[in-house]
Each structure stands twice: as C-alpha cells, then as structure tokens.
Computed example of a mutant assay.
Amino acid sequence: MAHHRASDTKREHFRRYLEKAGVVDSLTSVLVALYEQPERPNNALEFVKQHLGAAGQTSADTEALQQEVIDLRQRCARLAEENKDLKTRLQRHEPVSEDGATAE
C-alpha cells in the first residue's frame, strides 16, 4: 500500500511539473486544433509535431515578428507614396502619347 501512495505522489509531482512548464496547455491546444480540423490529416503525428513547434514560439518571437510586419508595412506605404510622386514628376517632363506609352 505504501508503494502505491509513493507512486501516486510521484505522478502528482510530475503532473504539476508539466502544468507549470506549460506542457499540458500546449498539448491541449494542439489536440483541440486537431479535433477541430474539418478533415483529419493523413498523419496525425506530423500534425502534432508541426503545431507543437508553432506553439513553442515565445511571445518575444511573436512580438518581434509583429513589429517587423508593422515596420515593413510603413516602409511599403512610404515607397508607394514615393513611387506615386516620382510618376507624377516624370509625367510633367515626358509627354504621353495617345496609346499610353511615353513619346521618345
């Protein structure tokens, strides 16, 4: 009987360790994602591996990527505005023929 209690205590410590480390939450979210798939993947283990890898990204990784997206969108907007300005300036100096091509 004492062996059974020691085994239960050991299991309980291990369970708390997994919860504290976020393993239980990660596994749960991956299994829920698998369950919610409209069509079951051919390789469930591969699905779990891929999604566990994605779940392993830290919030710092996510924040860095989000900031990079913001920076790139701002740069894209600036370049689009510059492109528009340059086209306008070019049209003032080069007349456009009737077919839309610039005259040479």
Rank of each mutant, 00 (worst) to 15 (best):
M1V: 10
H3S: 04
H4P: 09
H4N: 06
R5Q: 13
R11G: 01
E12G: 03
R16E: 02
L18Y: 01
K20W: 04
K20C: 02
K20F: 04
K20D: 14
K20S: 11
G22H: 04
V24I: 14
D25E: 13
D25Y: 01
D25K: 05
S26L: 06
S26K: 08
L27A: 01
T28F: 09
T28M: 05
L31P: 00
L31R: 02
V32W: 11
V32R: 07
L34P: 00
Y35I: 01
Y35N: 15
Q37L: 03
Q37D: 12
P38L: 00
P38Q: 01
E39A: 05
R40V: 10
P41G: 01
N43A: 01
A44C: 03
A44R: 07
L45S: 13
L45V: 14
F47P: 06
V48G: 04
K49I: 13
H51C: 09
H51S: 10
G53L: 08
G53M: 04
G53P: 00
G53D: 14
A54Y: 11
A55S: 12
A55Q: 14
G56H: 12
G56Q: 15
G56P: 02
T58A: 02
S59N: 10
A60V: 14
A60N: 15
D61G: 01
D61K: 02
D61Y: 12
D61F: 09
D61H: 14
Q66A: 06
Q66W: 09
V69T: 06
V69N: 11
L72Y: 04
L72N: 15
R73S: 09
C76D: 13
A77R: 10
R78W: 09
E81C: 03
R89I: 00
R89Q: 10
R92H: 11
H93N: 06
S97V: 08
S97W: 04
E98V: 11
E98D: 13
E98W: 07
A103M: 07
A103T: 08
E104A: 06
E104Q: 13
